[in-house]
Amino acid sequence: MSFGRMFFGVVRRDFLSRVRHGQDIVNPLLFFVIATSLVPIAVSPEAGRLTQLAPGMIWITALLSTLLALDGLFAEDYADGSLAQLILSPQPLWLLVLGKVFAHWLLTGLPLIVLSPLLALMLALPTSAYMPLMGGLVLGTASFSLLGAVGAALTVALRQGGMLLSLIVMPFYFPVLIFGTSVVQSAVDGVDFFPIMALLGAFFAFSLALGPIAAAASLKVGING
């Protein structure tokens, strides 16, 4: 079987099985919205202060909801045994992992990005920053998922895996958060944000190269946990 067919086979299978359990897709989104609406309550409903906080808060809640969703990246396949079959298959495991991460991102990262202008509106972010925010989130959430797959793979067999997954993976997310919030802030300040977006893109390329290989190695370890 060719690599392309294998990849899209995995994407299609994962995509369909997740769509048919619709609630799993909605939950991270609900978390994203609820967590963001805590900010005006806890800090201040005043538009000026919210504008200041908006880039950081949207990125932090996006990071947290991605982390929460990552817990389920391999969980179901591990529970029903199909993960072991995937590992045993002759195709390169990193490709299968990439397919699973892509399908997962389509249903967790992408809806979050589509929803983000609504939250930007609620946090009084200037409209000029909407596109940079969404563009940054595309590269950022994809990097979150790719690097997070390593943590998800290592903790797949553990009972309290979710918390541990966050602990391991979050330090790796600092660069994304730095570049991502800077993109939005530059757009708010009216400064050229493309150089920073390019850095975010570079980090995405790095995660794309490293993530699936490391996650594949991790799966072979984690499945024995």
Partner: peptide, 19 residues
């Protein structure tokens, strides 16, 4: 598992420091 995480950390440390 720890070996994998510390290796991923190693390649990330320069990026984290620079950023």
């Amino acid at each position: 598992a720890c070996a994998i995480v510390s290796l991923v950390g190693t390649v990330n440390i320069p990026i984290i420091y620079k950023s």
